[in-house]
Amino acid sequence: MNGIDILVAGFGTLAVYTYLIGENRFYRFFEHLFIGVAAGYLPYFLISNFLWPKALAPLLGFDILLAESYEENQARKILVALSLVIGLFFYVEYFSKRLAWATKIALTIVLASSAGLAIKGAFNELIPQLNSSLKPIISETLKESFSNFVFLTSLFFAFAYFIFSFNTERTRFSKFILVVSKAFLMICFGAFFGSTVSARLSILIERIDFLKNQWLETIRSMIF
């Protein structure tokens, strides 16, 4: 980062912090500036890092320049061309309401493929989780046995809380399970809150570090 970048970044950071006093024009200006830049970022990356090398360059015949021993792969070119055409279907409804049904084709392909992949992914994620939940209550050390017991108890009560298939408040026993489940859930959510505090503070600390070590130093070097 050069001096001008640091100066502008520092003013922008302070502008964002003025929101704490109340919404103001300074904050809104930088907020809209940021949204515009952020929105322009993704398309640039998609085109430069993926669409050009994977789709457009091969289609336009530039892959002959990049391959060592070039073999014309017509099947791949046709597939790429087809995928680009189907990808354009996303925008058809902006030109013709009559052809808006074409958008559904592109959406279906993307959604269905993601769903198919997700089915595979779910099993890969789920099975090890279930396997490792089966912990021995009687273990080598007392500490481990106690820990495993607490783990299994927490797991059981957390599962029990999310059973909505039947009325769990009918008997005293089921009400007891509900209360204990809530307690375990509160401990988990408390751990989440504690972790969130550290995370949010870290981001603010990084900004303070920037303001002190880069922004103030840049201003100091410009003045003196």
């Binding site: 980062m1 970044a9 922008g12 950071t13 964002v16 830049v37 952020a38 990084e206 900004r207």
Partner: peptide, 14 residues
């Protein structure tokens, strides 16, 4: 460097 990265971090740090 002057807008996207620092302002993104600043927004989250609020």
């Amino acid at each position: 460097n002057a807008i996207f990265l620092p302002l993104g971090a600043a927004m989250f740090s609020l």
